[in-house]
Amino acid sequence: MSDETAVPTYDVDEFQDELKAAKDNLAVGNVVWFENESVRVWGSTIEPGTRVPFHNHTIDYFWVCVRASSAFQRFEDGTGRYIEPTVGQVSFQRYGPGENLIHDLENVGDSPLEIVTVELLDGGQRPHTHAH
């Protein structure tokens, strides 16, 4: 299960209602721990055999794995992949105008999976200075 390049499929019909709602589901974690004008910090603990529903990433973000377990990620096009995040692993995702990612995350391991996700609300941009 450690092959992150595998592309197993799943039955999209099984998740049809959830997929229809996913574009508007911007909850990229279970609970917001902190938010200001620059960042929103989400905590997610996914127990074995449970999953985070399909949701939509539209904002640059990174996640950090703080408790590891095996997981399966489904994408809206019917593909999926097994992932094996490790404690301390970080992944950064950037989105241009109109870009997004819809996926779910299921814990298929034997222990809880815990992830901290940080959305960069200001796009990580420094204020522009304008010549007068």
Rank of each mutant, 00 (worst) to 15 (best):
Q73E: 12
R51M: 12
F34M: 10
P85R: 13
N30A: 13
H128S: 13
N36V: 01
H103G: 02
A22P: 03
W63H: 11
G29L: 06
K23S: 05
V116C: 08
F75Y: 15
W33S: 09
P48C: 02
G78D: 04
I115S: 01
V64L: 14
P127M: 02
V52H: 14
S38W: 09
T50M: 06
D110G: 13
Y61D: 15
I115L: 14
V52W: 12
V31W: 04
E114R: 00
G88R: 03
Q125I: 05
R74L: 12
Y10S: 01
H55R: 11
Q93M: 12
L101F: 06
V7R: 14
P53G: 14
I115C: 03
P8Y: 06
L120R: 14
Y61V: 05
P127I: 06
T45S: 11
F92L: 14
V116D: 00
S69C: 06
S2Q: 11
S111N: 09
V116Q: 05
V116W: 06
G96R: 11
G80M: 09
Y10D: 02
Y61M: 13
T129Q: 14
I102H: 05
P48K: 07
A6W: 01
E99I: 09
A21Y: 03
G123V: 05
F75M: 15
D110M: 10
H103L: 03
D3L: 06
G29D: 05
Y82F: 14
S2Y: 09
G80R: 11
V87I: 15
S111P: 00
Y95C: 07
R81W: 03
E4V: 10
L120A: 12
D77M: 09
E119M: 08
S70P: 01
R126F: 12
L105H: 00
I83W: 09
T50H: 11
L105P: 00
N36H: 07
R81I: 07
V41F: 03
P97Y: 03
D3A: 04
G88W: 11
Q125H: 12
Q89D: 14
L113R: 08
P48E: 03
H103Q: 09
I46H: 04
I83F: 13
I102D: 04
V39M: 06
G88L: 08
E37C: 01
V7C: 07
G88M: 12
N36F: 04
V66K: 10
G29Y: 10
W33G: 14
D104W: 06
M1V: 05
K20Y: 07
V90Y: 08
P85T: 13
T86P: 00
L19I: 14
V87H: 05
N30R: 08
E14C: 00
L101N: 12
V41C: 09
V7Y: 00
T117D: 06
T5W: 05
D77P: 13
